[in-house]
Amino acid sequence: LQLFIKTLTGKTSTVEMEPSDTIENLKAKIQDKEGIPPDQQRLIFAGKQLEDGRTLSDYNIQKESTLHLVL
C-alpha cells in the first residue's frame, strides 16, 4: 500500500509498504529515502505516536494514509 509521509517542512514523500510491515520497517524505508536515522523519527497517525514493534495493520493504516514525521 502507498503511504504519504509528511514532514514539518510540508514536504511529502511516498513509500510503498505492506499492511504486515512494522513501524520499524517503515522508519528504515524513510531512512533510505530521506537519510533520517530511525531513532530520530517519530511518526504520528490519527494523533497517536506509532511504536516500532507494531504493524501498520495494528494501527489500521490504510492505503494512501498520510503519516506525520516529527524529528
Results as ranks from 00 to 15, higher is better:
Gln31Trp: 15
Gly47Val: 02
Glu24Ala: 15
Ile61Leu: 07
Tyr59Lys: 00
Ile61Ala: 02
Ile5Arg: 00
Gly47His: 05
Ala28Tyr: 12
Thr12Ser: 08
Ile44Gln: 05
Thr55Arg: 12
Lys27Trp: 03
Ile30Pro: 00
Gln40Lys: 12
Gly53Pro: 06
Leu69Lys: 00
Thr9Tyr: 13
His68Arg: 08
Leu43Ile: 12
Glu16Asn: 11
Asn25Arg: 14
Leu67Ser: 01
Glu51Phe: 07
Glu64Phe: 15
His68Gly: 04
Gly53Trp: 13
Asn25Cys: 09
Ser65Asp: 14
Asp52Thr: 06
Phe45Thr: 01
Pro38Asn: 06
Glu18Ala: 12
Lys33Tyr: 09
Ile36Trp: 14
Gln49Gly: 05
Glu16Val: 13
Asn60Ile: 05
Gln62Ala: 10
Ile23Phe: 02
Gln40Cys: 09
Ile5Thr: 01
Lys27Met: 05
Leu1Glu: 03
Pro37Leu: 06
Leu67Trp: 02
Asp32Ala: 14
Gly35Lys: 06
Thr7Ser: 11
Leu43His: 00
Ile23Thr: 03
Gln31Arg: 13
Ile30Tyr: 03
Ile23Arg: 00
Leu50Pro: 00
Thr7Tyr: 14
Leu56Asn: 01
Gly10Asp: 04
Thr55Lys: 12
Arg42Phe: 12
Thr22Arg: 07
Asp52Pro: 07
Gln41Leu: 09
Ala46Arg: 14
Ser57Cys: 04
Pro37Ile: 04
Pro37Asp: 07
Pro19Cys: 05
Pro38Tyr: 13
Gln40Gly: 05
Thr55Met: 11
Leu50Gly: 00
Ser65Met: 09
Gln31Pro: 01
Asp39Ala: 12
Pro37Gln: 06
Leu26Arg: 00
Ala28His: 12
Glu51Leu: 10
Lys33Asn: 09
Gln40Ser: 09
Thr22Gly: 03
His68Ser: 08
Gln41Glu: 01
Thr22Pro: 04
Glu24Asn: 08
Ala46Leu: 12
Glu24Val: 08
Asp52Leu: 06
Leu26Val: 06
Ser20His: 13
Ala28Thr: 09
Ile61Val: 07
Leu67Met: 05
Gln2Glu: 07
Gln40Tyr: 10
Met17Thr: 05
Ser65Pro: 03
Glu64Lys: 11
Gln40Val: 10
Ile44Lys: 05
Leu43Arg: 00
Leu3Ile: 14
Asn60His: 09
Gly53His: 14
Leu3Thr: 02
Lys27Tyr: 03
Asn25Leu: 14
Leu3Ala: 01
Phe45Gly: 01
Leu56Ala: 03
Gln49Tyr: 13
Thr7Ile: 12
Thr12Tyr: 10
Thr55Ser: 09
Thr9Pro: 05
Ser13Asn: 07
Asn60Cys: 05
Tyr59Ile: 03
Arg42Gln: 10
Ile23His: 01
Gln41Trp: 09
Thr9His: 14
Thr7Gly: 10
Leu43Gln: 00
Phe45Met: 05
Leu43Asn: 00
Phe4Lys: 09
Gln49Glu: 15
Ile36Cys: 04
Glu24Arg: 14
Leu43Ala: 00
Glu18Gly: 08
Pro37Ser: 07
Thr66Asn: 04
Gly10Trp: 04
Val70Gln: 08
Thr66Arg: 05
Thr12Gly: 06
Ser20Lys: 08
Pro19Arg: 08
Asp21Trp: 06
Gln31Leu: 10
Pro19Ile: 09
Lys48Met: 13
Pro38His: 11
Ile36Glu: 02
Leu71Phe: 11
Arg54Cys: 08
Thr7Phe: 15
Arg42His: 11
Glu51Pro: 02
Leu69Trp: 02
Leu67Ala: 02
Gly47Tyr: 04
Pro37His: 11
Ile44Asp: 03
Ile36Leu: 06
Leu8Gly: 10
Pro19Lys: 07
Glu51Ile: 08
Lys6Gln: 10
Gly35Trp: 03
Gln40Thr: 08
Asp52Asn: 12
Thr9Met: 11
Phe45Trp: 09
Lys29His: 06
Glu64Leu: 13
Leu69Cys: 01
Ser57His: 09
Leu56Pro: 02
Asp21Phe: 03
Thr14Arg: 11
Gly10Ser: 03
Leu8Thr: 13
Glu18Trp: 13
Met17Trp: 08
Leu56Met: 06
Gln62Asn: 09
Glu16His: 13
Ala28Cys: 06
Glu34Ile: 15
Leu3Lys: 01
Phe4Asp: 03
Pro38Met: 15
Asp39Ile: 10
Asp58Arg: 02
Leu71Arg: 09
Ser57Gln: 13
Ile23Asp: 01
Lys11Phe: 11
Ile36Ser: 03
Gln41Cys: 05
Val70Pro: 01
Thr12Met: 13
Leu43Val: 06
Leu71Asn: 07
Ile61Gln: 02
Leu26Asp: 00
Gly35Arg: 05
Phe4His: 10
Phe45Ile: 04
Thr66Pro: 02
Pro19Thr: 08
Pro38Trp: 12
Gln40Met: 12
Thr9Asn: 14
Gly47Glu: 04
Glu18Asp: 12
Gly35Met: 05
Ile44Ser: 08
Lys33Ile: 15
Ser13Gly: 05
Gln49Arg: 09
Ile23Ser: 00
Asp52Gln: 05
Leu1Pro: 03
Thr9Lys: 11
Thr12Gln: 08
Lys63Cys: 06
His68Ile: 15
Gln62Val: 13
Ser57Thr: 08
